[in-house]
Amino acid sequence: MENLHFQRPAHTGVKRRALVGYVGSGDLEVMIEPCTTAQADIHILTSSPSSETRWRQVLERIEAVQPFPAMRMDIHDFAATPGVIRLRIEQALELALQDQEVSHG
């Protein structure tokens, strides 16, 4: 298990908190909460050892399309592939940036 921490300067913040995914085999959960500082604060707990470079690259790829908003993001990863990681992070960001809270069901 490895604890990783990435920080990025950011301007506009997320509008709401969000959670997607779960810690099942090959999957991950991504939680986003608003924060008061002007940065994206990303905490990753992963079951894959020595994966810092890979995570950095995944985050850079997402950033290249859409800069991260100011937020605290927590990731619990259970050996997800880069494709799944990217999908989950984008899902979480989409929810966190929505104006309206989506109701259950």
Binding site: L19, V23, S47, F78, G105
Partner: peptide, 26 residues
């Protein structure tokens, strides 16, 4: 009618899994 109690944002996770190198869920 659904209200979740002690939801994931409360971050009350297992105190025992990290000691064994196992990733928790919120």
């Amino acid at each position: 009618s659904f209200t979740e109690l002690l939801d994931p944002f409360a971050r009350l996770t297992s105190p025992w899994l990290p000691k064994q190198g196992i990733v928790t869920q919120f």
